[in-house]
Amino acid sequence: MHPVRKQRLYLVLFITLFSTAAIGLVVYALRGNINLFYPPAEVVAGSAPVGQPIRVGGMVMEDSVQRSPDSLAIRFKLTDYEQAVEVVYVGILPDLFAEGQGAVASGVLNEDGVLEATEILAKHDENYMPPEVTEALENSGYDQDGNAK
């Protein structure tokens, strides 16, 4: 074989092998590392999987936040004004987390339908709302303040 062709052949082989390995890695890493978003209504309806990482987003329900007196544990409800999901979390909450504001919780749903959150995301400025929460509210037909549209 011509030396240049031979070189090209090796090059193509090398790149094919390498990218196959990379794609394998990507597929492996994607499995189990993506989490789907569910609005509260779907969680309550039972369409969210139990025991798998998911995200739930909505407004933090007024008067639903309860803190433990002796640890950093907190319990609150996320609502799309149709249904509400109970969330428990241990740790420090983001600064803009507040009742009546949008938030996204990621974690695992347990047997009792309570989301055991490992991370809470709140919006980061006054005018911004996570797109998923906006859409979840649109689907439930309420605006951010809970008034029916």
Partner: peptide
């Protein structure tokens, strides 16, 4: 709506 988290990127 899915999100791809840090574990994917690290892996």
């Amino acid at each position: 709506k899915v999100s791809v988290g840090p574990p994917y990127f690290n892996a």
